[in-house]
């Protein structure tokens, strides 16, 4: 009875796209509760509906039925309390790195922070992702990894209740990816914010997450299983390689993805 309501609650969410009169039931019966400060990954085969689920939580796509509750209040519209780091960074190419972040800061904190405070806030977020040196460059002049960092800085700058990341490192090479994963772990440790991340990468999911949501294949994809990763933080990738819990968790995810829910090409 005394149990608190969860921080984020996804309840009975179902999504059906209708295109040209043909209904496509992408998600069905999605129920999940996420606590404040948790790092949750969503993993599943391509096209199963991960992005759709994330967009429903973000409010960018309306759910067909069901509801998303944040701190026990239903959310239907997008807003800066659920900041998104988009798969393709989505920086505005005509603004500098600084202005991309500053624009978000100005919008979210207008009236609440003075000009000087907003500047400091922007610089602080850029510093968190180690991008202060490139503040005056435009997105076209920096690397993919750097763009993703700026995207994360912009999302963090909104001081969101939940940070939503849609395959944030998907387009990056392995080394850059590892760097950014470490950055994100550091940020999570410092700010203790709630994060939901979509990934295709089993190692990434196990390394970063407190829990891994594994989705079944579509159509009508749903949550197949939720795996707890009980590894102490801070986690260091080199030490984990031989850690028994890590190996077990990794095996569990791989088994789910490739044995029980192997990807079958639609006929």
């Amino acid at each position: 009875m005394a149990k608190q309501v969860p921080y984020l609650l996804v309840e009975q969410v179902e999504k059906t796209f209708i295109r040209n009169g043909i209904a496509n039931n992408v998600l069905s019966d999605i129920n999940v509760a996420i606590e404040a400060g948790e790092y949750v990954s969503i993993i599943g085969h391509s096209g199963c509906g991960k992005s759709t689920l994330l967009n429903i939580i973000a409010g960018l796509t309306p759910a067909t039925t069901g509801a998303v509750l944040l701190e026990n209040k239903e959310v239907n519209d997008p807003g800066p309390d659920r900041a998104v780091v988009f798969q393709n960074h989505s920086l505005l190419p005509w603004l500098t790195v600084y202005d991309n972040v500053r624009m978000a800061v100005d919008k979210v904190f207008s009236g609440r922070k003075s000009k000087a405070e907003r500047h400091d806030w922007t610089m602080h977020k850029l510093d968190l992702v180690h991008m202060v040196h490139a503040r005056d460059r435009r997105p076209g002049e920096i690397s993919g990894g750097m763009k993703q960092r700026v995207g994360i800085a912009r999302a963090l700058a909104m001081e969101p209740k939940i940070l939503l990341l849609d395959e944030p490192f998907g387009a990056l090479d392995a080394l850059t990816r590892a760097h950014l994963q470490d950055s994100v772990m550091q940020i999570h440790a410092t700010l203790k914010n709630t994060m939901i991340m979509i990934t295709h990468d089993v190692d990434e999911a196990v390394l970063l997450s407190d829990r891994i949501i594994m989705m079944t294949n579509g159509p009508s994809a749903t949550i197949g299983e939720i795996l707890e990763v009980n590894l102490p933080r801070p986690r260091r990738r080199l030490e984990l390689v031989s850690n028994a819990t890590y190996i077990k968790a990794r095996e569990a995810v791989l088994k789910f993805l490739y044995e029980r829910h192997a990807f079958v090409e639609a006929a």
Binding site: P78, R82, L92, M103, A104, K107
Partner: peptide
């Protein structure tokens, strides 16, 4: 669509969307 998503998350109003996203993007 990405820029529209960004402005949706930031809750830009019509006027801000016009000046900060539409005009530069269509420039």
């Amino acid at each position: 669509q990405d820029y529209r998503n960004v402005s949706a998350v930031l809750r830009l109003n019509q006027f801000e969307f016009f000046w900060k996203i539409m005009l530069p993007s269509a420039a």
